[in-house]
Amino acid sequence: MQIDAKLAELGLTLPEAAAPVAAYLPAVEVGGLLHISGQLPFQDGQLMTGRVGEDRDLDYGAEAARRCAVMLLAQIRKALGGDFQRVERIVKLGVFVNSAADFTDQAKVANGASELMAAIFGDSGKHARSAVGVAVLPLGAVVEIDAIVALRDA
């Protein structure tokens, strides 16, 4: 699996992994699983903010989810010392969508991240998922996504 080549093919360059903004670790490896803390979406170095169904539309939310997935990939790369070959499978994504009370398309927003993981990792990128609407996210972010990744032995 040539992840770097796949990223290039999709026109993606991974940013530096984001440092934690509070008292937690960005990634923890235990029992063959890599748990990635929630990642926020950035576009051109700016945090993507707002509430889907209020001041942001579905397409903006889906793009934000895709950008969260890019940040998850950056965290995976950092945690594994650049060795994407250790990724066996994306097990689960937890997608939190800052959304209006009457917005019910959280799953469509989450597809922005899910489709990118499948495009990068193929069948190993297909995963279980939660897509939950929330009233507010840290720093006013429109989407936050965490992940569980199964690893091969080093």
Rank of each mutant, 00 (worst) to 15 (best):
99 S>N: 04
117 M>Q: 12
17 A>H: 02
26 P>Q: 07
52 V>W: 01
144 E>A: 01
74 A>N: 05
125 G>D: 09
124 S>P: 03
9 E>F: 06
27 A>E: 10
138 P>I: 00
110 A>F: 01
73 L>P: 04
112 G>I: 00
76 I>K: 00
131 A>C: 06
73 L>H: 08
55 D>E: 05
33 L>Y: 12
137 L>V: 00
90 I>T: 10
68 C>Y: 08
88 E>F: 11
131 A>P: 09
119 A>W: 09
10 L>F: 05
149 V>N: 04
51 R>I: 09
37 S>N: 12
115 E>S: 14
39 Q>R: 06
129 R>F: 15
121 F>H: 03
111 N>F: 10
106 Q>W: 04
135 A>K: 12
8 A>T: 14
147 A>T: 02
24 Y>T: 02
114 S>P: 00
68 C>A: 05
36 I>G: 03
78 K>L: 04
15 P>Q: 06
82 G>F: 09
150 A>M: 12
122 G>W: 00
116 L>R: 08
26 P>L: 11
116 L>C: 01
147 A>N: 13
135 A>I: 14
96 F>G: 05
27 A>Y: 06
50 G>M: 07
66 R>S: 02
11 G>I: 05
51 R>F: 09
127 H>A: 10
144 E>P: 00
65 A>I: 02
9 E>N: 07
91 V>K: 12
121 F>L: 00
93 L>R: 07
72 L>S: 08
63 E>S: 12
152 R>M: 12
138 P>L: 03
134 V>E: 14
73 L>K: 00
94 G>H: 10
71 M>Q: 15
98 N>K: 00
72 L>F: 02
60 Y>R: 08
78 K>T: 13
112 G>S: 04
10 L>W: 10
148 I>Y: 13
32 G>N: 12
139 L>V: 11
111 N>Q: 14
134 V>P: 05
35 H>Q: 02
115 E>L: 10
67 R>K: 04
30 V>L: 15
13 T>E: 06
85 Q>V: 10
14 L>P: 08
51 R>A: 03
80 L>V: 03
7 L>G: 04
29 E>Q: 15
30 V>Q: 03
142 V>H: 07
7 L>T: 03
55 D>L: 09
46 Q>W: 11
52 V>G: 07
143 V>N: 11
45 G>M: 05
43 Q>V: 12
75 Q>S: 15
25 L>T: 14
50 G>L: 08
98 N>P: 01
101 A>K: 11
114 S>R: 14
102 D>Q: 14
102 D>Y: 10
47 L>H: 04
46 Q>K: 08
76 I>W: 04
3 I>R: 06
52 V>Q: 01
107 A>T: 14
83 D>G: 05
58 L>T: 08
13 T>C: 04
139 L>R: 10
15 P>E: 12
90 I>F: 04
36 I>C: 02
77 R>K: 13
136 V>M: 09
57 D>H: 02
61 G>L: 00
12 L>F: 13
